[in-house]
Computed example of a mutant assay.
Amino acid sequence: MLTFADRLNLLFRAFLRPPDERGERKEWSNLQVARAAETVHGRSVITREHLRMLRNGERPRPSVETAAAIARAFEFLSQSEPEPGRASAIVAYLAIDPTEASPDEVAQVESIHQQLARAVDMRENKLLGLMARLGDLEDPESLDEIRELVTRLEDKERSRRGGFLRRHRR
């Protein structure tokens, strides 16, 4: 059975921060998620310490209101908030307690969990698959072309990130 900590930690892995100057995407901190929940709800809903305890399993699960606030914080941070009044799969994912839920609700939570886990796995493993394919190339001309392509892509991404960073620093 999926614990609240399992589900919450998967959200932290699934909803990463935008790329930094080096193009790396990292998890949001407990403090950032707590502040986002406060922004969305207009008041303090959860502290970073409470999030830490939920993530470590020191607290089994929060109230439905707090679980929904955490989910909405991730939607806010990822800029994927649903329209007001519209149901959110992420809210359901955190708010439904599988130990007290109907079989249909448990199936819904498990389905969302599998989709998120697959997305995280694809993001984390796609680079490994590409690297394995590149490892088969031996021709010096092919390797030079790969270096040139990577350099062009790095320049292109750096340029885009620069625009992203300028827009979000205002």
Score class of each variant (00 low, 15 high):
Arg169Asp: 12
Glu148Gln: 13
Ile70Phe: 06
Glu21Asp: 11
Gln114His: 07
Pro98Trp: 05
Leu153Arg: 15
Phe4Tyr: 15
Leu8Met: 07
Glu83Lys: 12
Asn56His: 09
Thr39Ser: 06
Glu65Met: 11
His168Arg: 12
Asp121Ala: 11
Arg166Leu: 15
Ala119Val: 03
Thr99Gly: 00
Leu51Gly: 01
Gly129Lys: 07
Ser80Glu: 11
Arg167His: 05
Asn30Cys: 00
Ala95Glu: 03
Asp136Pro: 00
Gly42Lys: 07
Ser78Thr: 06
Arg169Asn: 12
Glu81Val: 03
Thr66Arg: 03
Leu128Lys: 14
Leu130Ile: 13
His50Pro: 00
Asp144Arg: 14
Met1Pro: 11
Phe76Glu: 14
Val91Glu: 11
Gly129Val: 11
Glu21Met: 08
Ser44Met: 02
Pro82Val: 14
Leu31Pro: 00
Arg86Tyr: 06
Gln79Tyr: 08
Glu148Ile: 11
Glu65Asn: 12
Phe4Gln: 08
Ala37Leu: 08
Phe76His: 15
Ser159Thr: 14
Pro60Tyr: 00
His168Gly: 06
Ala69Phe: 00
Glu83Ala: 14
Gly85Asn: 02
Asp6Phe: 08
Asp121Ser: 10
Ser29Glu: 01
Ala132Phe: 08
Glu145Met: 15
Trp28Val: 04
Arg55His: 01
Asp6Tyr: 10
Leu153Gly: 07
Arg133Glu: 15
Leu10Ser: 03
Met53Val: 02
Phe76Ser: 03
Met53Gln: 10
Glu49Ser: 06
Ala37Trp: 06
Ser63Ala: 10
Lys26Pro: 00
Tyr93Glu: 09
Ala92Gln: 07
Ser29Arg: 01
Glu100Thr: 09
Glu148Met: 11
Asp121Ile: 05
Met131Val: 15
Asp97Pro: 00
Ala92Cys: 06
Ala89Gln: 09
Gln32Asn: 03
Leu10Cys: 04
His168Lys: 06
Ala101Lys: 08
Ser111Trp: 10
Ser111Glu: 13
Arg13Tyr: 03
Glu81Cys: 05
Leu137Trp: 13
Ala119Asp: 08
Phe164Asp: 14
Lys156Gln: 11
Gly23Trp: 06
His41Val: 01
Arg35Ala: 03
Glu148Tyr: 10
Glu100Ala: 12
Leu137Gln: 13
Phe15Arg: 04
Val33His: 04
Glu138Asp: 15
Pro82His: 09
Arg169Glu: 15
Ser29Val: 01
Val150Leu: 15
Glu157Pro: 04
Thr151Met: 10
Trp28Cys: 03
Gly23Ile: 14
Gly162Arg: 13
Leu8Ala: 10
Arg22Phe: 02
Ala101Arg: 10
His41Lys: 04
Asn56Pro: 01
Arg147Met: 12
Asp6Arg: 05
Arg167Val: 08
Arg25Asn: 04
Val45Cys: 07
Asp139Phe: 01
Arg170Cys: 05
Val40Thr: 10
Asp121Glu: 10
Ala87Val: 09
Glu105Asn: 13
Ala37Phe: 09
Ser63Cys: 02
Gly57Gln: 10
Val109His: 13
Tyr93Gly: 09
Glu138Gln: 15
Val40Lys: 11
Pro82Tyr: 03
Ala132Asp: 12
Ile70Thr: 04
Gly85Ser: 01
Pro19Ser: 10
Leu137Gly: 08
Arg123Ala: 12
Arg7Trp: 07
Thr39Met: 04
Val91Arg: 02
Arg59Cys: 01
